[in-house]
Computed example of a mutant assay.
Amino acid sequence: MVNLKNIQGREFLPGLSGKMLHGEKSTLGFWEIKKGSIIPEHQHENEQITCILEGELQMTIGGITTVFREGNAQVIPPNIPHSAVALTDCRAIDSWTPVREAYR
């Protein structure tokens, strides 16, 4: 069993802090995102599932822009460009398959 309080968090981008839990085949990320933070457009080989726990996050996925709010979730297929801007302070969970090696 893992307690999230015991996982060392780190700042990945200005205003984007996260704690990562890695399994053999997947990664689970717990994010704190400050209002105004920008996650630049990127893509990766991993399938990603994003779920917003609190706040409003404007995401552009494959050229389509949507505001995600508490309880909204989205599957982002592998190799699809995506980006985000935090409209408010946010908390979110992401999962990636396979393991997100860039976050080890």
Rank of each mutant, 00 (worst) to 15 (best):
P81Q: 12
R100Q: 08
C90R: 04
K25E: 02
E41I: 03
C51K: 12
G62I: 11
N79T: 10
I38M: 02
Y103K: 11
P81S: 11
I93H: 06
I61D: 02
I33H: 06
T88M: 07
C51E: 11
I76A: 00
F30R: 13
Q43V: 00
K34T: 12
E32R: 14
M20G: 00
A73D: 08
G18Y: 06
E56V: 15
A86T: 06
S95P: 04
S83F: 00
G36E: 07
A73G: 12
K34E: 13
A86Y: 05
P14V: 05
Q8I: 12
I64W: 02
I93S: 05
N46P: 09
V85A: 02
A73S: 15
K19F: 01
E11V: 11
V67Y: 04
N72V: 06
E70I: 01
I33L: 07
G15V: 09
I93P: 06
T97H: 14
L21W: 13
S26G: 11
G23H: 03
G15W: 08
P40G: 05
K34M: 06
N72Y: 14
A86Q: 04
T65R: 10
S95V: 08
G29V: 15
A84M: 07
W31G: 00
A92Q: 14
G23E: 02
R10A: 00
E32F: 00
G62T: 09
T60H: 05
A92G: 13
L53A: 05
V75Y: 00
K35Y: 01
N46Y: 09
